[in-house]
Structure formats: structure tokens, C-alpha cells
Design a protein around this nucleic acid. Sequence first.
DNA 1: CTGATATCGTTGTACTATACAACTCTCGGG
DNA 2: CCCGAGAGTTGTATAGTACAACGATATCAG
Lengths: 147, 147
Amino acid sequence: MSARDARDVALETIQRELTAVARRARATAAQMHPELSLVAYTILAHIEEQQGCRATDLAAHYLLDKSTVSRQVAALERLGLIERRVDPSDHRVQVLHLARHGNEILATARASRRETFEARLRDWDREDLTRFAADLVRYNVDAASHP
Amino acid sequence: MSARDARDVALETIQRELTAVARRARATAAQMHPELSLVAYTILAHIEEQQGCRATDLAAHYLLDKSTVSRQVAALERLGLIERRVDPSDHRVQVLHLARHGNEILATARASRRETFEARLRDWDREDLTRFAADLVRYNVDAASHP
DNA sequence: CTGATATCGTTGTACTATACAACTCTCGGG
DNA sequence: CCCGAGAGTTGTATAGTACAACGATATCAG
């Protein structure tokens, strides 16, 4: 097999397997946590990681329309998982923070999610994992610059 | 950093990056081909690869409800991309095949999709690609057995 | 052969996530 | 002070999905 062919085969495989990843993420999303969709989980995690953020930030980061984010955020607020605090220095802006219940829910969801991945990746040794993680990061960086 | 920590960091990274992959796939899906959603593309590709398949097979393979598949298939038939042929040996079954137009559309969609991935992965050398492809396959196998 | 059970697919219904467009409120610069 | 730009909300439409009820066909036990 020529180098050209090997490259083509790998490209084809990567396409197919990444599609499978996306499909699985969708199918698994619902049963993550009874109270938390995958989008909701992602938003909570982002807010925690950023120590508070604006709805516009979420929209930009997740390639979503601001109206979509607005509704997701409203739902999370209704559930008492997040709070909005109007930015005192700019009253157009609402900074989102985790509410206490949001912290709790996020912690349990994260734990259960982690268990899932632990189970899936149990047979991988440390080098395999770090290499795979690095490759995924690299792929996402490249994908972001070649949309 | 202990081995335990390295493992944890890698696990966390893999979770986050795989979620990003799913998010990107969703956002990119629409603009793949004017006439073809990501699901539609996937179905066409599956039919081609299997040289014809049943709606039930698609549902099982993609973790979708049979009603969902039924509607997707109906839409693809309306567009003239696939044909249904009643299985002569079992009249409950409809075997799906690509119509001529379906073959053409699939070919162009596949080419444009391939270009996208070529661009993204241009800087990867052959070893990087084959290793990444193999890791993705391994991950999906493991994920399938630990849902 | 007949009736019970299972399989394949369709249709009715409802819900969720999403986008786009129009709007309000607020900010900052001439 | 006004006007353009940014943040967020709401109205509307659409796509994708699930669940449940159904009809048609097949299979198997008796």
C-alpha cells in the first residue's frame, strides 16, 4: 500500500469515527442526568470554569444563536441552577453564575459522566490516554481554523 | 505529577474534546451540502456501504427510533435519492437502495466533506493520522460496549 | 389449518433545540 | 442630545426526535 493510500484510508476512517462520536454523544445526552441535558451540562460547566460569563460568550463559544442561549439560560434559571447578576458597570450585561443547586447538580453530573468515561477507557494505559487527548485537542484546534 | 493525575487530566481532556467534536459536527452539519443534512448523508453512505439495507438496520445502527428513520427515508425517497424494493422473500421488508441521483449527490457530498477534512488535517503526517484513526476506532468500540 | 405472537413499517401527536427577525434597553461617541 | 452598536428577549417557523397506536405480514405452536 502506498503512502498516499494509507493517508486516504486514515482520513476516511477519521471522518467516519468522528461522525460516530457525534451520534453517540447525541444519543447519550438525554440519559446523562435526569435533570440535565448535555447542552445544559455544558453550559453549567462553562460557567463554572469561567467563574461567571455572559450569554453572548456562550453563544460565541458554542456556535449557537443568542436566542437559543437566552432560552437555555432562562430554563436553567427557572430550575434554580444559575443566577443572573446585572453587571454594575454595564447594565446591558447579565453575568451568569452557578446557584448552589447548580453546583450540586453539576458535581453529580460530572461524577456520573466521569464514571462513564472511566469505564470506556479502562483498558487504555496512561500513554494511550495522553496521546489520544493530545490528538483530540490538536484536531479541534485545526477544525476551528478550517471550519 | 503522579501517574494518577496524568490519567485524570487526560480523561478530563478527552471528555471535553469529544464534546467539542459533537458540537462542531452539529454546527457544520447544515452546510455540508445544500441538499443533504448530516443524517441524510450518513444514511446514504450506509446504504451504499451495505449495498442496500432495511430501515430497521438503520435505526439499530444509529440508535434512532424506527419512526424517525421512516420519515428520513420517506424524505430521501421524495427527493429521488433512494428507492425502496419490497423483499420478495418477506413482504414486510423494504430494502433500500441508492437511486442514480442518490449516487451522484453522495459522491459530491463525500468529495466536499473530504476536502474539509483534508484542509483540517493537512499538517498531520501519515503516522499521526493512522494513529489517530486507530485510537478513534478503539474508543468507539469501547464506547459501544460501555454505553 | 388456525390462532397467538413477533416483526416491519407508517402515522398521529408532542416536545426540544434551533435559527432568523423584530424588538427593547443600554452604552458610548460625535 | 442623538445615533449607531451591543446585549438580551420574544414571536415564529422548522427540523429532528420519541412514544404510542396501528396495519400488514411472517412464524410458530397446537
